[in-house]
Write a protein that binds this DNA or RNA. Sequence first.
DNA 1: GCTTGACTTAGAGTAAGCTCTAATCAGTAT
DNA 2: ATACTGATTAGAGCTTACTCTAAGTCAAGC
Lengths: 118, 118
Amino acid sequence: MHTIGEVAELLGISAHTLRYYEKEHIIMPLRDTSGDRRYTESHIKWLQFVIKLKETQMPIATIKKYASLFLEGEHTTLDRLNLLEEHRCSIQKQIQILNGVDEMLAHKIATYRTFIGK
Amino acid sequence: MHTIGEVAELLGISAHTLRYYEKEHIIMPLRDTSGDRRYTESHIKWLQFVIKLKETQMPIATIKKYASLFLEGEHTTLDRLNLLEEHRCSIQKQIQILNGVDEMLAHKIATYRTFIGK
DNA sequence: GCTTGACTTAGAGTAAGCTCTAATCAGTAT
DNA sequence: ATACTGATTAGAGCTTACTCTAAGTCAAGC
């Protein structure tokens, strides 16, 4: 069981952000007798997953949706599968865009180099 | 020479956005006798480049910087080169992140599939 | 001459995702 | 007892990148 401060430190996000995610129902930690948030290992695993999704530009709204499907239980498995497949598709599109621009920049940089002779 | 409406249509962005980019000094079109904006082919080429950079999450502030270096002339070539090289580096990092998450999702999806037998 | 439609401006409003403030409380150290 | 630390809340504020509004100008067609 971890406090909000520990989790923030561990994951490299702020306690503010963790409270914001809770307000958005992305993560629902337990509470101790003083009403302080308590995060279990599985909460942390989930948050690490959320952070990975965020790094690939999944919007908070979609992460919220996935989280709520998860809480709804077994019968949402297919929906979750579809959501992940769609996101995978968008990741692949983005990789293609990035590769294209990377190549364009490589050319542009090469041209700059020949002009300044570096 | 093209009007703001034509350019908006051609590039798939709004006239509002083009005016916003001008307010930010990202693009400075000419003006006709009535004071209307006029975009040349080279303006359009520049805008297409800007859109490509945007698709790779380059912030407006950085695009602005690149544009202002360009307007300053020849002696900023090295700075522009550095800026593009840094951005290329960030693109490559992002590609790695995307590939990593893509792989993770592939596993997760495969696991879901075996559970529901699809 | 009047309407239509595309343009002009300054500035207000919006959505996403935090980020911070103020006031408060609980537990520990001196 | 009191000060410090780290937690709590509701709600305000911030940044980015647009997006829209209001009020107005101007040229072309009927």
